[in-house]
């Protein structure tokens, strides 16, 4: 009887010992997921954590990995997070360059008058419908802030 009890308690103790030291994958997953920022998906298999999703910057990506590594029972972290490409800033040409380039671009459109001020190209006069797209394509390549089209389309 005594031996049985002793054995039983040993089994329980052993079980508790293992459970305590090796949290299962689901528990690890839940614990890490709760700490990670939105947009990060956490998957755990045999103590190996895989992070997926898209984050704003490298710092966030590194932080997410640290959080996962700090969790008890984690053996390894595979960081598959991607960093969102930063928006390419809008480039607007200087007026001096723009004035010259607009003059070049509109040279073949004698009925079109173009003025440049603070990056804005103001178009007045008239144009044939067929030529309008060509003119707009030429002007859009010059990096203006805006094309203010007041042309009369014939």
């Amino acid at each position: 009887m005594k031996t049985t009890k002793l054995l039983m308690s040993m089994v329980i103790a052993t079980t508790l010992f293992f459970v305590g030291c090796k949290p299962n994958d689901a528990a690890i997953q839940a614990a890490i997921q709760a700490k990670e920022a939105a947009g990060i998906t956490v998957a755990v298999a045999k103590g190996e954590v895989t992070l997926t999703g898209e984050v704003d910057d490298e710092a966030t990506k590194a932080k997410a990995e640290e959080i996962a590594k700090a969790e008890k029972g984690v053996k390894a972290v595979i960081n598959n997070l991607t960093v969102k490409p930063a928006d390419v800033p809008v480039v607007i040409a200087e007026d001096s360059a723009l004035i010259k380039n607009v003059a070049d671009a509109t040279k073949d459109f004698p009925t079109v008058k173009a003025e440049v001020k603070d990056g804005v190209i103001l178009l007045t006069g008239e144009i044939k419908k067929a030529s309008l797209i060509t003119l707009m394509q030429h002007l859009s390549a010059l990096k203006p802030k805006k094309i203010d089209n007041k042309l009369t389309v014939k």
Partner: peptide, 17 residues
Amino acid sequence: NQIDPNFTSGDLVLNVN
């Protein structure tokens, strides 16, 4: 041109090379 006929709105700069 379909969205903004004759490009009169002045709210888009389409620079595709």
